[in-house]
C-alpha cells in the first residue's frame, strides 16, 4: 500500500516534470526543408516555443519528443529507426507535414516509404504543407496535454534479481 502510494507520487512527479520541460529532437527524413524551417521558426522570438519549456536538443539520448518531417527515404529509414531506438522511454513521435503523414506529393516514388508511421509508431500528426508555426505549437501542446490525463499506468513486475522494474505505458 505504502509502496503503491510512493510509486504513484513518483509517477505524478515524473509526468509533471515531463510536461513542463519536454526536450525535442528534430529529424529530417527526406523532406523538402519547408517543414524544417517552420519548426525552426517556432523556436525563434516570434513564436517562442521555449515558453512551454520545450527545448531543441542535438542528441536523441537527451530527447523526449521526436519531431519528424519528410516522407522517409530509403536511406534515412535506418537512421530514423536507430534514432528512435536511442531515445529513452517514454518517447513520443510527432509527424509534421503532409509528407510525414502519408508521403504527400512523393507518395509512390521509388525511394520513399510513404510516411513516418510506416517505420516507427507515431503519437501525433500535424498536417499541412507545411504546417504553420501555430499549428506545430498546437500539435505539441495537444500531445503534452494528453500526457497530463492521469491514465499514465504503472505496471510493476518483480524481476529476477528482486528489484522492481517500472514500465510506463502512457499513451
Amino acid at each position: 500500500m505504502t509502496q503503491n502510494l510512493l510509486q504513484d507520487t513518483i509517477q505524478r512527479l515524473k509526468t509533471w516534470a515531463r510536461i513542463n520541460s519536454p526536450w525535442v529532437l528534430h529529424f529530417n527524413s527526406g523532406s523538402c526543408n519547408g517543414c524544417d524551417i517552420e519548426i525552426l521558426a517556432t523556436l525563434t522570438p516570434r513564436y517562442d516555443l521555449e515558453r512551454f519549456g520545450i527545448k531543441l536538443m542535438g542528441s536523441p539520448r537527451h530527447a523526449d519528443v521526436l519531431l519528424c518531417t519528410g516522407a522517409v527515404t530509403r536511406q534515412a529509414r535506418d537512421r530514423l529507426v536507430r534514432i528512435y531506438e536511442q531515445m529513452h522511454d517514454p518517447k513520443f513521435v510527432v509527424a509534421i507535414g503532409a509528407c510525414a503523414l502519408s508521403g504527400g506529393v512523393f507518395r509512390g516514388c521509388y525511394n520513399v516509404m510513404d510516411g513516418i508511421d510506416q517505420v516507427i509508431p507515431v503519437h501525433a500528426y500535424i498536417p499541412g504543407c507545411p504546417p504553420r508555426p501555430e499549428a506545430i505549437i498546437d500539435g505539441v501542446v495537444k500531445l503534452l496535454s494528453s500526457l497530463s490525463i492521469p491514465t499514465a499506468k504503472v505496471e510493476t513486475q518483480p524481476s529476477t534479481d528482486g528489484r522492481i522494474e517500472t514500465k510506463e505505458c502512457s499513451l
Binding site: 529530417n28 527526406g30 523532406s31 523538402c32 526543408n33 519547408g34 517543414c35 524544417d36 524551417i37 519528410g70 516522407a71 527515404t73 536511406q75 534515412a76 537512421r79 504527400g104 506529393v105 512523393f106 509512390g108 516514388c109 521509388y110 525511394n111 520513399v112 504543407c129 507545411p130
Partner: peptide, 30 residues
Amino acid sequence: LGYAHRGIEKAVEGRNWIQNLYMLERICGI
C-alpha cells in the same frame, strides 16, 4: 549525398505538366 533523394526526376515523367508544377515546387521549401 542522397538522404533526401525522393526520385523526383522519375516521378515527373508520370505526371502531367500542371501536376508537375506542384511537385517541383516541393523540391525545396526554402
